[in-house]
């Protein structure tokens, strides 16, 4: 459980975070969204006691981070601004972290195995790819078996397989009852993972809402259909109150109804469907419109 109240950070005349108030409950994946420079990392750094808030409080399980006993066993974090020392091996990096918080040594091998770094555990980090470094960072975050996870842009540098692994892991960790926060500057990265959204821009909260509600409110979902009877389906859908337009390439763009409605109408009238999909650009557009709109 994370509780943030009136959290503010000013650097001279620049206000990076302006009075954020929110709660992050356990058991769900919460996405912390915002453009680069919106104040996500600053907020996470204040939660971790790295930066001092100008005003307000950030508490984890009711305590300030610095008050936690063996904090890595309560909070696991991955920060954009941090890096393992290039001259240390992956295992040595985890060894000092484990020592600092009395984490039992067997956890080192467990997390190395979990992120598939066992084979390179005794190599210096200097030779690691961006993806390998990111996985080492995730191993470090999971080392203390924490009940709270704060991950700043965890997808950075991961390959397709890594991203899929991360998504599954985050869902599983949340299902185990942990508090999971994932920051990102891309809606599409968290769309399939998050249950709840926190959207910030210029240090202010724009949306604190469950993902389905956000989708319903902001994405006028456009359904893409391929059918040999495009004109006929368009007429049927228009008659039902939807907007449907046949494109020059013969496909059909439908808005105002969902993909399930389109398929129901087509089935009822015996229109064969070759392809049916939802265009997600509109969601990314909605996110962009929301964040850039607030900037002006």
């Amino acid at each position: 459980m994370i509780e943030v109240r009136g959290l503010t950070k000013r650097y001279g005349p620049v206000t990076a975070v302006a009075g954020l108030t929110f709660d992050v409950p356990p058991g769900v994946v919460t996405a912390f969204l915002g453009a680069n420079g919106a104040g996500k990392s600053t907020t996470l750094r204040m939660l971790l006691g790295l930066d001092r808030p100008t005003a307000g409080t950030a508490r984890i399980d009711g305590q300030h981070y610095a008050e936690l006993r063996d904090p890595l066993r309560t909070v696991g974090s991955l920060l954009d601004s941090s890096a393992p020392h290039p001259g240390r091996t992956a295992r040595a990096h985890l060894r000092w972290l484990a020592a600092s918080n009395r984490v039992p040594g067997h956890r080192i091998d467990e997390v190395l195995d979990l992120v598939h770094l066992t084979a390179v555990a005794d190599r210096r980090v200097r030779g690691f790819s961006l993806g390998m470094r990111q996985r080492l960072g995730l191993a470090a975050a999971l080392l203390g078996d924490p009940s709270v996870l704060l991950l700043d842009e965890p997808v950075n540098g991961l390959d397709a397989e890594g991203i899929r692994w991360l998504r599954t892991s985050l869902r599983r960790l949340a299902a185990e009852g942990r508090t999971v926060v994932v920051s990102s500057h891309l809606m599409s990265e968290v769309e399939q993972t998050a249950d709840h959204l926190l959207v910030i821009s210029r240090g202010r909260m724009l949306a604190d809402t469950p993902l389905p509600d956000f989708l319903a409110a902001h994405s006028a979902a456009r359904v893409l259909v391929r059918t040999p009877q495009a004109r006929r389906l368009a007429e049927l859908l228009t008659a039902g109150g939807a907007a449907a337009a046949v494109q020059p390439d013969g496909s059909l763009h439908v808005s105002g109804v969902g993909a399930d409605d389109v398929s129901a109408v087509a089935a009822r009238h015996g229109v064969p469907l070759l392809a049916l999909g939802t265009d997600h650009r509109s969601l990314e557009d909605a996110f962009l419109a929301l964040t850039t709109g607030a900037d002006t």
């Binding site: 790295l50 610095a66 941090s82 972290l97 600092s100 918080n101």
Partner: peptide
């Protein structure tokens, strides 16, 4: 850039 890790581990 290891100092953030250090201070997160030992705040």
């Amino acid at each position: 850039r290891t100092v953030h890790d250090s201070l997160v581990a030992v705040p």
